[in-house]
């Protein structure tokens, strides 16, 4: 005896599957609030890097190297569109401190994208410390997990550092001779900024550049902040479910009913 199957909104028929019509209707090619690759996260990041760059590149000892001249001259010869890389100071560090979901990693990825000679290292939890290459600047995500021995080695190198951390590492940095600036992120989030962050995601999932796509208004952003605070990850997760439910039902986008 079998009880009739319960099925849920999913394209079950994979054998004759057509491109799901739900996304083209909204002029999107995917749910904009799903997980992105590191490259995509860096591309859609809404971050102001000027204070950071100003701190790490003001007068001080030059970071390096023969390569600087090589790369700069290459670029001048190419008449390129990538902004000229600034000269980074040795023994300068910039810390990003904040709770989960506030954008530390997104900022790090955006910085890594902007400076081609930078290195980005993510330190996983409960796993051996990965290899740490030189970089100008060197970006270390979850820097509070640096083992003491490795931390000493990295700090002794004098490399320009950008650290995303849950714990303040000012003490060890200063003892190693670093000048440090700390930015606490996620304390505030304006509706304008949230709308810009979310609309960039929508834009990055646009199917046809000639057709319009749904937009997050300032009013909707205000309601999202009232509901979820400054936790952008929670807001994106909430919107994923909303968008998925709406395209499964009627294809129209209402982000908050």
């Amino acid at each position: 005896m079998s009880i009739p199957a319960k099925t849920f909104p999913t394209n079950l028929n994979c054998q004759s599957a057509r491109p799901p019509l739900r996304w083209p209707t909204a002029n999107l090619f995917r749910n904009p609030f799903g997980e992105l690759t590191r490259e995509e996260r860096a591309e859609v990041a809404v971050v102001d890097l000027d204070p950071l760059v100003a701190w790490l590149t003001t007068a001080g000892e030059r970071s390096a190297t023969v390569d600087d001249e090589l790369c700069d001259s290459d670029r001048i010869a190419q008449g390129n569109e990538v902004p000229r890389e600034p000269v980074f100071c040795r023994f300068r560090a910039f810390q990003l401190i904040g709770d989960c979901g506030r954008g530390k990693t997104t900022r790090m990825l955006a910085i890594h994208r902007r400076f081609p000679r930078s290195s980005y290292v993510y330190l996983p939890e409960d796993e051996p410390c990965p290899a740490i290459p030189e970089g100008t600047p060197l970006l270390i995500d979850e820097a509070q997990r640096l083992p003491w021995r490795v931390r000493r080695k990295v700090f002794a190198s004098g490399a320009t550092l950008i650290l995303a951390t849950h714990n303040d590492l000012t003490g060890p940095l200063r003892r190693a001779g670093y000048q440090v600036t700390t930015q606490r992120i996620g304390l505030t989030l304006t509706a304008d900024r949230l709308a810009e962050i979310l609309n960039r995601r929508l834009q990055a999932s646009r199917r046809d550049p000639r057709q319009p796509i749904p937009q997050i208004s300032i009013q909707v952003a205000e309601q999202l902040i009232a509901r979820h605070g400054t936790d952008i990850r929670a807001i994106e997760s909430f919107l994923y479910d909303i968008v998925q439910a709406q395209v499964n039902q009627h294809g129209e986008m209402r982000f908050i009913d």
Partner: peptide, 23 residues
């Protein structure tokens, strides 16, 4: 989604069918 301490597992049951072998 996520990695390390931010790793979250999501589950979605899209099909369910019960067969009764004895009652």
């Amino acid at each position: 989604s996520g990695s390390g301490s931010n790793r979250t597992t999501h589950r979605n049951v899209f099909f369910e069918q019960q067969h009764v072998l004895q009652e």
